[in-house]
Design a protein around this nucleic acid. Structure first.
Length: 213
DNA sequence: CCTATGATGATCT
DNA sequence: GATCATCATAGGT
């Protein structure tokens, strides 16, 4: 029987691999957010890989800074950043320590604790929208900079950890260009999602912002 | 359904 | 001062 595996935690070895191996393998896994009010569980349906200093789309492209330093640390930790003046996004650090790989968690299906997410996701018109997009996902799970650097490998009291869940069949995994990434980074088809899943966010090409008048 | 735009601030050059 | 791995809303089709 393999059913017992679903609720077993992912170990650090899972994340200590090349980010392009880890990213598609995260689909179907369960992210558990432990809150004072109870657990929120999210089945991952969409992710993007960011491959370190060689990747023009990565925050680490111009080397180590105070903000991105967590990405250079041990695999299996959370890298949380604040962007567009309003939003947080959650990444999981991948690859060996010293190499700045990470996977942006872009969307998922809330399987447990939907009522705990709605207090923050009041604009969601259906459950499918609760975590449909990276900032929505972070909002739903009550994730902010306080969790930057948190270990997401299961330990008692951890705010975050992951379970094996049920990965989709290989032929249901699609990949394409990353959402909102421009320039040379746009050529890499490093966004991965589960084909046909209603919680996957719509693809948007990168649009450079015009200067304020 | 769709596209256009304003909100808002940390980070880096 | 420009950039940014975004979202919610308004208004058109």
């Amino acid at each position: 029987m393999t059913e017992g595996l679903e609720r077993t935690p992912l170990t650090r070895d899972f994340f200590d691999r090349p980010v392009l191996d880890v990213a598609p393998d995260l689909l179907g896994r369960i992210l558990v957010r432990t809150t004072p009010d109870g657990p929120i569980e999210l089945r991952l349906t969409e992710v993007e890989a960011y491959a370190g200093e060689a990747d023009p789309g990565s925050h680490a492209f111009r080397g180590r800074t105070p903000r991105n330093s967590v990405m250079y640390g041990p695999p299996g930790h959370a890298y949380v950043y604040f962007t567009y003046g309003m939003w947080h996004c959650l990444n999981l650090v991948c690859g060996p320590e010293g190499r700045a790989g990470g996977v942006l968690l872009r969307a998922g299906e809330i399987q447990v604790g939907a009522e705990l997410t709605r207090v923050r996701r009041t604009s969601a018109r259906s459950d499918k929208e609760l975590a449909k997009g990276p900032a929505r996902l972070a909002t739903a799970l009550d994730i902010d900079r306080a969790l930057d650097g948190t270990d997401a490998i299961a330990h008692p009291g951890n705010a975050l950890h992951l379970l094996h869940g049920t990965p989709p069949p290989r032929d249901r995994v699609r990949n394409g260009p990353r959402t909102g990434v421009g320039g040379d980074g746009a050529t890499h088809p490093w966004r991965f999602w589960i084909d046909g899943d209603p919680t996957v966010s719509p693809y948007r090409t990168h649009v450079p912002r015009r200067r304020a008048t």
